[in-house]
Every structure is written in C-alpha cells, then in structure tokens.
C-alpha cells in the first residue's frame, strides 16, 4: 500500500490571543498533521476552547498566523466538521435528530433552499455511521447524552469534512457512552484527522495519537502520553490530577525530545 505524504491540516505560528485584556494564549505554535488524533488538554480557562475557535477562524488572534489547510481559516473552515460544546444548544428546542444533522449542510447565502434528496442521503449516511438512523425522528430532548453527541458528530460528518474538531464531546455523557463515542471516533480517524478538547485523561492512551497541552503556552507531544512537563504547565498540582484519572501508568518519565528538555 502506498503511503501518502503527511500534509498539514492546521498550523499556528506565534499566535497570541487576549480576551478583554486577559491574555489567554501567548506566542503559541502548533502543527496538526493529517490523520492525527490529537487531544487538547489543560486546566479550565487555559485556552483549550479558544485554541480550537482560533483554528476554525471563529476568533481572530491579535498576533500570529493561522492556517487551516494552508489557507486563512475563514476560507476553509467549512472543510472541518465542528462539534461545539453542547451547552450552546438549547436542550428543549423543538427539533428532530434528522433536522439537526441536516443543519450541517447549511451554507451561507442560499434562500428558500429546501434540502435535496442528496442532502437526505448524506444525512442518512452520517446518522448510520453513528448508529443513530433508527432514532432520527426523535426529539433531541428524548435522546441520552451520548446519543445526542452522536447526532452532533453526525451533523459535523454530513458535509464530508476532512477533519473533525470536537469541544468536550463527553462532558454530559455517562462512562459507557464515552467509551462508545471514542470507539466511533477511532473508526473515523482511519479516514479523517481528529482534534478533541477533553478533560478525560482516560482516553489518552487508548485512542489518541498525540497530546496538546495548553495553558497560555502550548506543548504538542507526538505520543499518547502526559509528560511531567505537561503536568507542570497544565496543572499547578499534579497530585490533584493523579487523584482523578487512571493516570499512574500513563505518566511516562521524561525521555528527551523537544518537549521533555
């Protein structure tokens, strides 16, 4: 099998972003390569969501360069499937799972347009991939947290994206749903690049290929592990973190390389 050369999905160089005068990211560099499955971790308020929004062109940094598929993100963001934090979506909104997925086909500047047969076929395929087709007519409110997230991922997949950006997809999902969600993502990663903001360090070793630790500055570690440097950068107190996840056998000792100096 011919291995295609790795290409860059997204890159940041010297990106600085402040929100209402409060510095969130400072001189940050990042290269996200094709087929990566990268997890963005870091403390609350450390800039994880901001980083993702900058990559999508939803926020403009005060300094630095952002490229998405080699171009300014405003031009190429539609090639990314985006799964925002689910707190944005109104839970009681009257909408069916199918209509949520069709939303992923919206493009600016098309009035009166009804969804075509092709659109419906694409929605069926996306829902099917996430094993949610049988639930398509249910109101979003009637679905479990995990099922809702699968619908949101289907909505992101329906436009046939080259990358999938997910912001805390497992925040309101029970443990079983989380495992299920990540195995779906792992399968998708055979085709597309995945970038996921997560609090859940459990996923690191089993699913993820690289780890991006963000706390004003950024470390991209090209292996599924948390290094002591990341702990120092990311969390003031590593012990607190050890208490949460199943970390002890995932924290590997410093082994040299650019981020372990």
């Amino acid at each position: 099998m011919k291995r295609e050369p790795t290409r860059e999905v997204a890159s940041l160089s010297g990106v600085t972003f402040a929100y209402n005068g409060h510095q969130v990211l400072e001189g940050v560099d990042l290269d996200l390569e094709e087929r990566d499955f990268a997890a963005i971790i870091g403390p609350n308020g450390g800039g994880k969501t901001t980083l993702m929004k900058i990559l999508l062109g939803l926020l403009r940094p005060q300094r630095g360069q952002v490229l998405l598929f080699g171009e300014p993100p405003q031009r190429t963001a539609h090639r990314v499937g985006y799964v925002p934090q689910d707190i944005h979506a109104n839970k009681h909104f009257p909408i069916s799972a199918l209509d949520v997925v069709l939303m992923g086909l919206l493009r600016p500047g098309r009035l009166f347009r009804r969804y075509s047969r092709d659109d419906h076929r694409a929605a069926e395929e996306a829902l099917d991939q996430m094993e949610m087709w049988p639930e398509r007519h249910k109101r979003m409110e009637e679905l479990s947290g995990g099922q809702r997230q699968r619908v949101f991922i289907a909505r992101a997949l329906v436009s046939n994206p080259q990358a999938l950006f997910l912001d805390e997809p497992t925040a309101s999902v029970d443990a079983m749903g989380q495992t299920d969600l990540y195995s779906h993502l792992k399968r998708l990663n055979e085709r597309i690049t995945i970038l996921v903001v997560t609090h859940d360090l459990m996923v690191l070793s089993s699913y993820v290929k690289s780890v991006i630790c963000v706390n004003r500055s950024l470390i991209h570690h090209h292996a599924p592990e948390v290094t002591p440097d990341m702990l120092r950068l990311g969390y003031r107190c590593p012990v607190e973190l050890l208490g949460h996840g199943h970390l002890p056998h995932r924290v590997l000792p410093c082994h040299g390389g650019p981020c372990c100096e």
């Binding site: 539609h78 985006y82 109104n90």
Partner: peptide, 11 residues
C-alpha cells in the same frame, strides 16, 4: 436559534 456557535462555523 438552536446552536449559534455551530451556525457561525458554517458561515
């Protein structure tokens, strides 16, 4: 109305 964040990302 449903998800302005996502709508914004769709342009």
């Amino acid at each position: 109305s449903y998800d302005d964040e996502f709508a914004r990302a769709r342009g």
